[in-house]
Amino acid sequence: MIKRVRMMKLHKHETSQAYTMAELESKSSAFLLVTGPRSSASSDVCSDSVKISDDFLKSHVNPDRYHSFDDVRSAIRQQGVKTCNVIFAIDYTISNETSGSKTFGGKSLHDLSVVNPYQKVITAIGETIDPMRGENKTINAFGFGDNEVKDKRIFPLSQEPCSSFYDILCAYKTKTKDIKFGGPTSFVPVLEEAIRIVKETGKYHILIIVADGQVTEEHSSLKAIIEASDYALSIVVIGVGDGPWELMEEWDDLENFNNKVAEQGLSNRRFDNFQFVNYHKITNKAKNPDIALALAALMEIPDQYKFIKENILVNV
């Protein structure tokens, strides 16, 4: 069983510093890597008396005003989100082998000889959300798109329950060593499982999908996203690698999906439940890459949470 390690606040490092895998593992007790400078104390930019405006939540403002993960957590909590339940899904389609040609030095996005984008995303989201999970002891973590399940099913990253994002990081490394990439790419099995979990638990969840490209079956994925809007579920897709991302960006920008799939007679979403984040674009020039990513990924959560709390009967 993977030993649960409590996250601890990390010291400030220079932006140019990078960790090798050996260094990463040696720092496991403090929960891993730093890809940009961060403060050991929360910035006074985001005090308890400050709230994020609606305009901020709907647009990408300069994330460098936030200097620590505490800042991001504080901003989210101020909007009413006190605890989070998380579902995490990792893309193992074969395009991961080539879609890092521009943004990851030509290496596979799952290359374990370096700290890869999937590990960086797990870290950044984990350092933000893990302290907000309250008494929830388990994070549901899955893989999809490998040569075995293809676009039909998902599989657990670990046979043992993941009780922290550190557990997910360890499970990811262990599982990835033996994975045979496959495809095609479909979010449908992940979305169906997320809906099942929300229905079973009756609790609000954030679904984080980390993927290297857009889906190959557009209609079925749109239909699943629309169905998901009947439940207490926020969907965040974080795109790693070169993309293309046009379809994901289009989905993120749509006020609703009704016009997109009107010919199929599908209903409107009950609320805007989908957020897309281009990992490379967000982190490439940020002074605090991890913090910039976390803020971009979670900035729509307060509005979604507010709608769910007011309109969907669920124990949020």
Score class of each variant (00 low, 15 high):
313 L>V: 11
231 Y>S: 06
290 D>N: 11
98 T>C: 08
17 Q>S: 13
203 K>Q: 13
122 I>K: 04
292 A>Y: 12
73 R>D: 01
174 T>R: 08
5 V>Q: 10
96 N>K: 04
222 L>D: 11
204 Y>G: 06
76 I>T: 01
218 E>A: 13
285 K>P: 00
109 L>I: 02
161 P>E: 07
160 E>Y: 13
214 Q>D: 10
172 Y>F: 14
240 V>S: 06
160 E>I: 05
294 A>E: 03
78 Q>M: 10
69 F>G: 02
212 D>P: 02
233 L>Q: 03
281 K>E: 14
160 E>G: 01
83 T>H: 13
53 S>L: 08
73 R>K: 09
94 I>C: 09
164 S>L: 02
271 F>K: 00
13 H>E: 13
23 E>M: 09
228 A>V: 01
181 F>N: 02
137 K>C: 06
285 K>F: 15
248 M>F: 13
237 V>E: 06
272 D>L: 08
243 G>R: 09
16 S>R: 11
258 N>E: 15
60 H>G: 06
128 T>C: 15
45 V>H: 14
316 V>H: 11
220 S>W: 02
24 L>C: 09
294 A>R: 01
97 E>Y: 10
226 I>E: 10
17 Q>Y: 15
157 L>C: 04
70 D>G: 14
134 G>I: 04
217 E>K: 13
53 S>P: 02
256 N>T: 12
289 P>F: 07
190 V>M: 09
35 T>K: 09
257 F>W: 05
6 R>S: 12
286 A>S: 13
33 L>M: 13
63 P>D: 09
286 A>K: 03
36 G>N: 04
151 D>V: 00
173 K>S: 10
87 I>Y: 04
54 D>M: 08
181 F>L: 11
54 D>E: 14
90 I>T: 04
242 D>A: 07
117 P>Q: 07
183 G>E: 01
224 A>R: 02
226 I>H: 03
